[in-house]
Write a protein that binds this DNA or RNA. Sequence first.
DNA 1: CATGAATGAGAGTTCATTCAT
DNA 2: AATGAATGAACTCTCATTCAT
Lengths: 221, 221, 221, 221
Amino acid sequence: MSPSTPRKRLSREESQAQTRARLIDTAQQLFVTNGYGGTSIRDIADWAGYSQGAFYSNFASKEEVLLELLRGHMEAEAAQLSNLVDSGGRTPEQILGDLESWAATLNNDADWCTLSIELQLHANRSPTFALEYQTVWDAHRAGLGRVIGKLFATLGRTPPAEPEELAAAFMALTHGLALQRVAGRPDPSGRLILVFLRGLIASAGLPDTAPGADPQPALPA
Amino acid sequence: MSPSTPRKRLSREESQAQTRARLIDTAQQLFVTNGYGGTSIRDIADWAGYSQGAFYSNFASKEEVLLELLRGHMEAEAAQLSNLVDSGGRTPEQILGDLESWAATLNNDADWCTLSIELQLHANRSPTFALEYQTVWDAHRAGLGRVIGKLFATLGRTPPAEPEELAAAFMALTHGLALQRVAGRPDPSGRLILVFLRGLIASAGLPDTAPGADPQPALPA
Amino acid sequence: MSPSTPRKRLSREESQAQTRARLIDTAQQLFVTNGYGGTSIRDIADWAGYSQGAFYSNFASKEEVLLELLRGHMEAEAAQLSNLVDSGGRTPEQILGDLESWAATLNNDADWCTLSIELQLHANRSPTFALEYQTVWDAHRAGLGRVIGKLFATLGRTPPAEPEELAAAFMALTHGLALQRVAGRPDPSGRLILVFLRGLIASAGLPDTAPGADPQPALPA
Amino acid sequence: MSPSTPRKRLSREESQAQTRARLIDTAQQLFVTNGYGGTSIRDIADWAGYSQGAFYSNFASKEEVLLELLRGHMEAEAAQLSNLVDSGGRTPEQILGDLESWAATLNNDADWCTLSIELQLHANRSPTFALEYQTVWDAHRAGLGRVIGKLFATLGRTPPAEPEELAAAFMALTHGLALQRVAGRPDPSGRLILVFLRGLIASAGLPDTAPGADPQPALPA
DNA sequence: CATGAATGAGAGTTCATTCAT
DNA sequence: AATGAATGAACTCTCATTCAT
C-alpha cells in the first residue's frame, strides 16, 4: 500500500456502517433460524460481536432491524423483477424460461422465503410495521403481476384471474411451500410452481382465435 | 325443577371438562390472534377466567395445548376429507363441486388456517412437537392426495405431478393465502384455489384417448 | 379363608391408619433423599399412592409429618438408649461393647442420621417445630449422657467434660460424619466414634488412685 | 480533598465490584439464616438493594453465588491452615495453642460453619456443585490432616487413625456442633473440640520409647 | 459511537393449601 | 375419609430497554 492510501483503519463513518451491516446480517440469520420472536436483541448483539448498546446506537428497536431487512428484501426483489419485466420483445418460451429461473432462485434461497414469512407474520401483529410492509408487498405484487400479464399477453391468451391476484397466489404458494420444508428432504417448490403456471396457461382462454386450434402447442411439459 | 331433570349445577366431571374446553378455546383464539409465541399461559388463563394453576391442572405445558388443538384440527380435517373421498361413483362435476365447497370452508374458517401456520412454524422449532405434527400432516396430505388422484382418475387424465405433491401444494397455497389476509379486504382464497385446480386439469394429459379430441370440454371456467 | 376370619377388607380405622402409615413412610424416604425443602406434598402423596387431599386429611401441614417422624425417631432412640442404660452391673468392657454396637447401628442406619440433620435444620428455622424438637433432643442428650457418665463411673474415672456435653459432642460427630457420606465410599463413622471415645477415656483423670499406675491397661486400641 | 483524588463517585468498575460484593454478602447472610433452599434470588436482590436483573448480571444462577462463597470459604480456610502448618520448629504446646485458637475462631465465626453445612448439603444434591465442592473439601481435609500429623509427630506419638480421617472427624464435630447451636445458649464447640483432641493424644501410642514413662506429662487438661 | 450493569416487567412453572364433590 | 381441580403466591430466569461511563 502506498503512503497515500494507508487506511487500514476505517473512518468513523465506515466503522459505523460496518457495525450496522454486521448487526443486520446477524439479525437476518437469527430471524431465519429462530424466528422474530425467538430472537433477542442480546442474541443479535452477541453473535455480531457487539454489545447491546451498539445495537441501540444503530436501531431504535428490534422492529427497526426488521424494517431494514424488509428494505433489503424489497430492493432485491425489485431487481429480480426488473430483469423479468424490462427486457421487451421476448418469446413466450423466453419468458417462461425466465420464470423458471426465478422459481429456481426461490428454491435455493430458502432463507429469503422463511424471512418473508416472518415479515408477513409480524405485519399481521404490528400495525406500525404493517404500514411499511404493505407498500413493499403491493409493489412486489404489482411487479410480479406485470410479468404474468405480459406472459399471457405474449401468448395471446386471457389469464383466468387478475394478473395481480395470480401473482399473490404464486407468492402464497412459495411461502406455503417454504413453510413445509423439512431439513433433509428435497424441496419440490420450484418444480411445483412451474406445474401450476403451466396449468394456468393451459386453462387460459384464446379470446379471438379460430376454434379447433391446438390450445398450447408451444409449451410441452 | 323435577328430580328427573337435575341441577343446573355441573357435576365434577362436567365442570372440569368445561374448564378444559374453555382453556382450549381461549388458547386457540389467542394463538390465532397473537401467535403461539405471543401468547402467554397467563393470557390464556386470564381470558378463560381461570388461574394459571388451573391451566397446569389441565395441561403440562403450553405445547400440550397446542397438541390438543392439533388433535382437534386433525379430526376436523379427517372428517372433511372422508366426506370428499368416501362417496363413490361421482361425476367429475360432482367431485369438483365438492372441492369447491371445501375451498369455501377454508375461506370461512380463516382461524384454522392461521392456526395451521402456527402449528407448522412451531413444528419447525420444536422437535418434540414436530414428531406428533408430522403424523397429522402426512395423514392429511395422503387424504387430500387421494381425493385429487380420484378426481383425475374420474376425468381419465394423468395428473401433472404426484397427487400427494399436488395436495401439499394446495395446502401450501391455502396457508400462504391465509398469511396474506388483511382484515377488511375480501379473501380470494377459495376462488384462486379453484382457478389453479382447473389449470392443473387443463394441462393434464389424456393418456390413451384419440388425438385431436377437445381436451377439456366438460370443464369450462 | 374361613368365614370366621373374613376380613380381607380393612375396617375404616385400620384403613385410615394404613393411609397415615404409608404417608409417613413415604415422607421419611423422600425427606432423606431430597431434603425437607426439596420434598413437596404432591410428591409425598403421589409416591404413597394417594391424593393430596388424603395427605391433608391426615396432617395439617408438611411440618406435621415431620413432627410425626420426630416422634418415631424419639421412640426408637429411647428404646436404643434404654438398652444401653438399664442393664446394671456391667463391666466396662461390656459397656464399651454396647456403645460399639450402638455406633455400628448408626453406621447402618444412615437414613436416620440424614433425617436427624433435616430435623435439626428445620428446628433452626421454625420456632414452632423447635419447641417440640428441643424436648426430644434434650431427652436424648440426657439419656446418652447417662450412659457415658455410667461408663466413666464404672471405670472409676472423671470424664473430661460434663457427660451431657460429651453426649452432645458424640451426636454432633455422628451428624457431621453423616453429612460427609458420599455414595460409594466406605463410611468410617462407627470406627471414628470409637476412636474418639477411647481417647476420652484415656485422657480421663483417675481421681483418687495411686499415681504411676498404667492409665488404661484394659482398653487397648 | 486534593484535585488528584477527587471523586466521591465510584468508577464503573468499582461500582460493579461493589454491587457484586454486596450481593455476595447478602447471599451469605441469607443462606446462613434461611438456608440455601429457603433463600430466593428475589430475597438476595431485595435485601442487597438491587433488582433481580442485577443479580443475573453478576451470576448465572443461584448456585453460582454459592460457588463464589465456596471459593471465599476456601481461601479463608487455606490462609488459616497455612498459619497452623507453615511455621516450623514448634513445641507441642505451641501447636496445641495454635489449634486452640483455631477452635476459638470456629466458635466466633458460627456463620462459616452454618454456611459450610449448607455447602455440604447442596453438594449432596447437586452433582455440578459436588464436583467443585469435592476439590475444596479434599484440600481442606488434607491441610488439616497435615497439621494433625505434625502435631503427633512432634509429640513422638502414633495417631490412633489416619491424620486425614481425624481431620474429617474434627470437621464433622465442628459441623455437628454448629448444627446444635441455639441462639442465646453459650456455644461449647471450641472447648469440646480441644477435649477430644487431648483425648486422642492421650490414647496415642508411644511407638519406640522406654516403657513405664509417663504417657502425657506435658499436657494436663 | 459503543459499553454493559442495572432495571422492571413478564415469561413458564411449582407449590402448599382449599373445597365442592 | 379421600379426591383432585382450582387457587394465588412465589419461584427461577429472560427480555427489551435505559443510562452513566
